[in-house]
Design a protein around this nucleic acid. Sequence first.
DNA 1: CATGAATGAGTATTCATTCAT
DNA 2: AATGAATGAATACTCATTCAT
Lengths: 209, 209, 209, 209
Amino acid sequence: MNEPCKQHYVAGDDRRTAIAAATRTLIAEHGFEGLRMREIAERIGINIATLHYHVPSKAALVELLAQSLRDEFMAQHAANPRDALSPRQLLALEIDEFEQTVLTNPGLHIVYRELMNRAARDETVRTIISPLSQFWHNQITRILEAGRADGSFRADLDPQAGASIVIGSLIQYSRECHNKEVDFAPLRAELLRCVSTPGDPRPDERKTA
Amino acid sequence: MNEPCKQHYVAGDDRRTAIAAATRTLIAEHGFEGLRMREIAERIGINIATLHYHVPSKAALVELLAQSLRDEFMAQHAANPRDALSPRQLLALEIDEFEQTVLTNPGLHIVYRELMNRAARDETVRTIISPLSQFWHNQITRILEAGRADGSFRADLDPQAGASIVIGSLIQYSRECHNKEVDFAPLRAELLRCVSTPGDPRPDERKTA
Amino acid sequence: MNEPCKQHYVAGDDRRTAIAAATRTLIAEHGFEGLRMREIAERIGINIATLHYHVPSKAALVELLAQSLRDEFMAQHAANPRDALSPRQLLALEIDEFEQTVLTNPGLHIVYRELMNRAARDETVRTIISPLSQFWHNQITRILEAGRADGSFRADLDPQAGASIVIGSLIQYSRECHNKEVDFAPLRAELLRCVSTPGDPRPDERKTA
Amino acid sequence: MNEPCKQHYVAGDDRRTAIAAATRTLIAEHGFEGLRMREIAERIGINIATLHYHVPSKAALVELLAQSLRDEFMAQHAANPRDALSPRQLLALEIDEFEQTVLTNPGLHIVYRELMNRAARDETVRTIISPLSQFWHNQITRILEAGRADGSFRADLDPQAGASIVIGSLIQYSRECHNKEVDFAPLRAELLRCVSTPGDPRPDERKTA
DNA sequence: CATGAATGAGTATTCATTCAT
DNA sequence: AATGAATGAATACTCATTCAT
C-alpha cells in the first residue's frame, strides 16, 4: 500500500487525533473545569511529558480541541449530498443530521456547548468557534431564504431570526437529551410547521432511507 | 435611626447574599472553571476563612449560587402582573422580560448557561436547576395551550415542542448578545409569527409602557 | 448553705471539669494530633469562644488535662485503705487497681500513654506528668523494699528495677487490651512470682471481695 | 568512576528511603501531631510537590514509615547469629540489642511508641505494626519456653506473661531514657533474675565482645 | 519520541485565637 | 459568661509545565 508502515509508534498526527478524542471524552465526563492534562495522557497511555511534547500547553490543547470539533462538524455536513433538494428537504436534513449526531456522538454536543460558553470570555476559543457557529447560521439562513423565495416557507419569515430559532431549538433539545430520553420527532415537525406556508399539503420531507 | 451602626459585622444572611452575588460576577468573568474561593473573598472584602465560615465548602457555594439564581428567576417572574393578559400578550411578556434581564443583568444568563451545562454531570446542581428549567418550560407550554384554545395561536401548534423552541431561541439569542449588540425585536416578532394563526391582524402586544 | 445557687449556668470549675472530661474522651478517640478545640466545645455544647473564656489556649488545655489526670490518679490511689496490708497484698492491690481502671475507664490510660509520649518533647507536660510517674514508681519501689525486708520478696530483688518492670508490664498490658480482650490474671500471677522468694507457699493475695 | 554523576536526580527508592528517615527524625522531634509534609520536604531538600510525587498522601507516608520501621526491626534482629546460644544467652541478647538500639538510634523507639499508640485507633497502622509486635512477643515467648524446658528458667514461669513483662519493661526503660541518662544494667540483671531458677550460679551471659 | 523526576504557584480547607456585642 | 463573626497562618494536596536522560 501507499500507506506508511506503522510499527510500534504512532505518527504524530494520529497522536494529536488521539489526544483530541481523549480531551473530548474527558470534557464530556467532567466538564471544562475538570479537564486535567494528566488524565488525558493516562487515557491514551502516554506519559504527561510526552503529551506536552505533542501539545505544548493547555491553551494549545483547547485550540486543538476546537479545531477537531470544527473539522468534524464540517465533515459531517459534507457527508450528505445537498444538490437537488428542496428548501424544505434541506431544512429537514439539517435537523436529521443534528439528531443523528446527538444520538451517535453525544459527547460532541456537550463539548460544543462547553466551548460556546467558553468562547464568551476566551478570545482564542471564540476565534475558532465563532466561524463554525456563523457557518451553521448562514447555512440555515440561506435555506430559509430559498424556501421563502420559492413559496414553500412563509412570506413573512425572517431568515436571520428563523435561523436563530432553528439552531437554538436544536441545541436546547440536545441539552434536554441528557436528563431523559427525548423524541426528536415533535420538534422536527413543529419547526417545519413554524416556517412553512400555512395550509401547505406538506409531503413527507424525510429522505426515503 | 435606632438601627445600630454596623462596621465590622454584617448580618449572616447579607453576607451569604453578597457571596452569591460575587460568585455570579466571577463566574460571568472567568467561568466555572475559573471560580476561586479566594477571589470571592477578596471581591467582597473578607478573609478567606470568613468566607468558609459562611459557606463551608465549594460544593456548598455552588448550592448557594444555584438557589440564589432560582430565587431571582422566580422573583423576576412574579414582578409583573399576569392577570387579564391574553396568551399573545403573555408570550410577548415572557420574551420582553427575558430581554430585560439580558440587558440589565447579563451575568445572570451566563451563569445560568454555565449551571445548565454543569447540571449534566453534577447531581446537586441538577436537583436545584432542573425544577427551574421545568417551571419555565411549563409556563410557556401553558401559554401556548391557552392561545391554541382561544384561537389566537395555530391549531396545529404542539405546545411542548413550541415551548422548547421559544426557550431555546431566547437562550441562543442571549448567547449571541455577548459578541455583538443584538436587537431582540426580530426574534420577538418572528417567534410570535411562528405560533400565531396565519393572517391574524396581530395588534401590538407590547405593553403600553 | 454557703454554696452559691446554681440555676441555668454551671459554675466555672464545673465547666473546666467538663472540658477536661471532653478532652480526655476526644484524645482517646482521635489521639493528641486529632484534638480540636472546636470539637471539645461542641461535645459539651458551648461556643468555641466560651471554651476560650474558660481555657485561654490549647497549651492551657493540655495543662488542665494533665492536672485532671493527676488528680484522678491520686484519688484512685487514695480510694483503697492501705494500712495493715502485707507487701505482697499491697503489690497485688496495685495491680488490681490498675486492672480496674483499665476496665472501668479505658480512655484514661490511652490519654496517659499519649501524655507520656508528649512529655518526651513538651516541657509543660513533662512538669506535670513526671511527678505522677515518679510517685507511682516510688510507691512500687517502697512496696518491693518492704517485701524484701520482711522476707516475702527475693533477697536479691532490685526495688528500682523491679518497679520499672511492674509498671512497664502493666502499661504494656493496658496497650494490648485495645486489640483483644486481655485477661490480667496471668500477668498478675507472674509478676508476683517474679518478685517472691522461691518456694514460698503464696497465700491468695486477692482481697476477699 | 563509571558511576554517573547524579546531581538533580536520585533513584526512586533512595528518595523514599530518605523520606522515611526524615519522617522518623521529625516524629521523634515533634511527635505525630507535629509532623508536617512541608518540613519533611525541606529536611531532605526537595520541593513539596516532589515529596507528593514519591509519597502521594500523608496516609501513604504513615504506611511508608511503618514499613521502614518494620524493615529495620527485622534487619536488626537478623544481624546477630542466634545459633548455639542458650536460652539465657538469647534473652540477654534480646535485651542487649534493645539497649544498643536505644543508644544508637533513640528516635526509632520514640517513633515505635508513637506508632503503637496510633495503632489503637488507626486500622492501617495497626495492620503493619501489629505483626511486628507479635513477632517480637513470640520471639521472647519461645526463648522463655526453651529456658523453662532445659531448666535454666523457673519451672512455674508463664512464657506468655513473661514475654509481656520483658517487652513492657524494655519499652518503659526506653521511655525513661529520654529524661535522664539511664543505666540499663540493673534492669538487665533484674529481668534475668526474674525468670531464672533460684540459686542458679548464673554465669555471665554477656557475649564476650 | 518518550519518560521519570522535579517544581512554582496555586487551591480549598482548617484551626486556634480574637473581639465587639 | 456567652457568642456570632472574623482572621492570620498554616496545611495537605494539585496541576501545568520543565528538563535531563
